[in-house]
Every structure is written in structure tokens, then in C-alpha cells.
């Protein structure tokens, strides 16, 4: 059990650091790369929790497609590669304060609900289980997601068309 905890803390540290860097770096490309770190940490956490399916989907979909899209976005908009001017607008410190407050309330809500009982890390969940759940229990959202992708497709085409 100890190994898992240690692993968890390492990944958690990576993710937190990555997230903070994403927010604070001036250079956009750096931000994208830090995001990759956060996502990779997330995938590792999923594996730790025994959910290979979600972990690998995350790795492929997110890190593979989403970040690449971001990089495209950055390229296309010819955003300056080197650090830009001061990126954060002036209301920086009140924002920080509000964030801490919000995080505090959420943390309290979690602790209050579950106290300190350790989550028993049972055997990893096999993908078959998720598969049949999706196609039996959640069939309708699956259909609707198809419609969603269609809408996104058309949307992207409409926006990208040379008028």
C-alpha cells in the first residue's frame, strides 16, 4: 500500500506544479507543454486507481489530439514564440484570494463527506466492464455524443471556410 501512496504524492506534486506553471508562464508554447505534464500525471493517477481503460484513453485522446490541436492553434495564430508582455491582467491578487477560498470550501466538503477512511484500492477495473456499462446503461448519451461530434464537425468546417 505504501508504494501506491508514495507514487500518488509524486504524481500529485507534478500535476500541481504543472497546473500552476500553465497558468503563470508567459510563453504560450511553454504553457502547452506544461499542460502535457499535467495530463500525463492525470493518466498516471488513473492507472494508479486501477482504471487502465480511462488512463489509456486519456493518454491517446488528450495528450495525443488535444495538445496537438493547441499547438496548431498557436502556430496558426502566429502568436509570438518568445515571452509576451505581461499576460495576466491587473486583478491578479484578488483572484488568488478567491481561488484559495474556493479550494478551501471544496476540500472541506470532501473531508466532511468521507473523513479519513482510506479508499480501498481494489483490483483494477477491466475494460470489458466499462464497455458493457456504456452500451447497456448509458446507451442514449452514446447516441447523443454522435450528434455532438457531427455538430462539432460542421461547426469547424463553417468557421474555417474561406468566405
Amino acid at each position: 500500500m505504501v508504494a501506491q501512496n508514495v507514487a500518488f504524492w509524486i504524481f500529485a506534486a507534478f500535476m500541481a506544479a504543472g497546473a500552476i506553471r500553465v497558468v503563470t508562464t508567459d510563453n504560450i508554447v511553454h504553457a502547452a507543454l506544461w499542460l502535457v505534464l499535467v495530463l500525463a500525471g492525470g493518466a498516471a493517477q488513473f492507472i494508479l486507481l486501477g482504471q487502465e481503460f480511462v488512463a489509456w484513453v486519456q493518454v491517446i485522446v488528450y495528450i495525443g489530439a488535444v495538445i496537438v490541436l493547441f499547438l496548431f492553434g498557436i502556430m496558426l495564430t502566429r502568436a509570438p514564440m518568445e515571452a509576451e508582455e505581461k499576460l495576466n491582467n491587473n486583478l491578479r491578487w484578488p483572484g488568488l484570494a478567491a481561488a484559495l477560498l474556493f479550494a478551501g470550501t471544496l476540500a472541506w466538503a470532501f473531508l466532511d463527506q468521507w473523513g479519513s477512511d482510506k479508499i480501498k484500492l481494489t483490483k483494477p477495473v477491466r475494460t470489458k466492464e466499462i464497455g458493457d456499462l456504456v452500451f447497456r446503461g448509458y446507451l442514449v448519451p452514446f447516441e447523443v455524443v454522435g450528434v455532438l461530434l457531427l455538430a462539432a464537425l460542421i461547426g469547424a468546417v463553417v468557421m474555417a471556410r474561406k468566405d
Binding site: V140, P141, V144, L148, G155
Partner: peptide, 18 residues
């Protein structure tokens, strides 16, 4: 089902963003 509400919400908002 809450998940369905979320997905449906996304469908119509994405269409409206465009």
C-alpha cells in the same frame, strides 16, 4: 440522467457557439 443532460447541453451550445 445527469450525464445525458450534460451531453445534450454541450450539443446545443456548440451549435450555438458557431
Amino acid at each position: 440522467d445527469l450525464v445525458l443532460v450534460f451531453v445534450a447541453l454541450e450539443v446545443f451550445s456548440i451549435a450555438l457557439y458557431i
